[in-house]
Design a protein around this nucleic acid. Structure first.
Lengths: 212, 212, 212, 212
DNA sequence: GATGAATGAGGCTTCATTCAT
DNA sequence: GATGAATGAAGCCTCATTCAT
């Protein structure tokens, strides 16, 4: 238990430390608004290390992207709904999605920012639709089971269904500032959250249950 | 003796010209990424005029915000669904919302950007929930009429319902870049658009029609 | 005669001022060794103006190149040897060349530096062999007249002859530091200069006069 | 044991390897433009070793200088013209000089660079005019023998004569980039080389043969 | 001797803003 | 109102050098 050294001598630790701080900075200010100096000041290292490990500001941003996407998907892994009743399963997936977005505003903001960047940096990343393979399979399985049981009548692809409930979960977090101004409602209050949670679930289930 | 001057002499024209260019610039690059120089080059005037008319970069951005929000609402005015069947009325409102977002990516991006800014500039604007008063009244009227006719059974506020379908319409445009990478689907293709249009409408109607 | 203003408000003056200082800096330290900060400090303006007027460091260097080459050639214009005896004419051209290099060490160093850069920047300049057209014509005329008079017997192109005497005039200035170390002679002393001046002239004349 | 290690264990080998790479780097980019990182990457060792063996960047540059000068002179040793006819001897010396410069552009560039540096580093080196002693003696011998035989009439020091033909041989290589732009001639083409080779030799011989 | 990580001063450049005319 | 030139703070990045192991 030696006294905390002023600087790290471990590349992995350094990278991790930088990435954590960078995630916050990019989420807070966007790519253009983020300041490398501010990131460096937030870490236990120096600006030079950022360039040593990540090349340039864009490289750092890309590394943040590469970290943040898989993180969502790996949390999804813990959802195990294979042996659950289809409606219950859907509710749990929607709960998870709503909670994840609400708890990870940083993630939501990074995704917004990347869309402002027109997805250019994400494309340069190795990330592609394979990251979504598992969740798509899970949804497909639920839809099929629901069909077989006669609970669901609607023909819909897992991708479309996923987009549908995700859009709402995302928007609640991404747009809460402007919605607060323009509609005078705090979407992130406990009450709104509870109402909205019921609303998406009910809508999805009613949609699937209704005839084509 | 006015032989068509290369530069504008009319303050209003100048302001309008600057605002148009600024909207594109802010929508393209965000607040931090926008460049006053680039805006000036895009106009028929010079940088000095931007500062003369709008004070500073933030002032210009605020002016863009003040222009873009009312524009959506004034388009909504043309929707006249007072004497329309509630379901048909809802479908027309959702159609309008979906079309408006798809046709005005600039608007969507400005709203995203303002959310990245945590709504700080919008708050400094005169814009508040009164801009949404009319559309809320329209939805309320539809919901009441639907209830009375026994078509709708669900108790839901106009605000929540509006957020629900808008979130999807917004997300389709705002997040199409990242969704394209992560799900491998182009949400803005004609086919996706048609499917999605049906999906929101069906889900909203099924939701309202189903029991609490 | 107002008191010297701290900053210029005249683009041409500013450009000229920057160029003068930049010439000295590049000549002293080379392109890579030159410091934009140091140049700025030497001028009556600020660093920003360098970028405003010249784009970047390379642009400034290119502008220096564009200034320095024509300067040599325009000085050559003052040589009028059309009605002079061929030998006398040649001697005057060599005198001019030797003097020009000795008096303009900056020019010599800039040319050296551009050769270290492999001529990349000069190529991006509008400068080409047309700048040398006049002097080539002058030499051609001398050679022809010398032939006609039976003074010269050697067939040689103006270009080759020009390279021959110029190489010596250039080298005396460009390489005087290393020659001083390695041969222990100061090529720029008055005595060396006098001896060398005689030597080039005599060699050129003897060469032209001797049979092929 | 020793299963061929990827890194050198032999200090001398390491030094030699670094020096070779450094010569190329300095010749390519100059002292200010050279990058220690790039040199290290080019070697079979690491940056630390450069500092271990040569102290600092200047120390490495100095070591390059100390290697490159003696190399020219040691090649000259192979010239044996003591028993050769004076004119033939001179021609062989000029041939050697012209060839050496043409074949060793790196050498030429290092000398240029050191002149850009005003010879400061060469002076800190042990190198002085003794490195030229041998070639001076050879030229002196030729001049004396030519005088005795009545072939040469010109009084000229070996140093001046050496500078005269060397300047041309050096310039052809050192300045070929700018000359190509400004005179539109490729001095390093086979044809130019042949013409120029004859020209220097003829000029030197004509000069020495002609009366004072 | 050897290595990869770390340092920090300083380099080049950008950019919102102001100013003289 | 309008303009081009100017400002200066601050941004991103590089690079010679050092250090712990």
């Amino acid at each position: 238990m030696s006294d905390d050294p002023p600087f790290l001598r471990d590349a992995d630790q350094t990278r991790k430390n930088i990435l954590e701080v960078a995630l916050k900075e990019f989420a807070e200010y966007g790519l253009a608004g983020a300041r490398v100096d501010r990131i460096a000041r937030g870490t236990r290292t120096t600006k030079g290390m950022i360039y040593y490990h990540f090349g340039d500001k864009d490289g750092l941003y890309k590394a943040v992207l590469e970290k943040v996407y898989p993180s969502l998907r790996s949390d999804e892994e813990h959802l195990d709904v294979r042996n659950t009743d289809p409606i219950e399963a859907l509710e749990r997936i929607i709960d998870f999605t709503l909670d994840y977005h609400e708890k990870h505003e940083d993630f939501v903001r990074i995704v917004m920012i990347e869309n402002i960047n027109k997805g250019e940096h994400l494309r340069k990343t190795g990330i592609d639709s394979t990251v979504s393979y598992r969740i798509m399979m899970v949804i497909a399985d639920i839809l099929i089971r629901g069909m077989v049981l006669g609970l669901f009548k609607r023909e819909v692809t897992p991708v479309d269904l996923h987009i549908f409930y995700t859009s709402f979960c995302f928007y609640r977090v991404s747009n809460h500032h402007t919605v607060s101004s323009v509609l005078g409602i705090n979407m992130l209050s406990a009450q709104s959250c509870a109402r909205h949670r019921r609303m998406v679930k009910d809508a999805v289930i009613a949609y699937l249950a209704s005839a084509d």
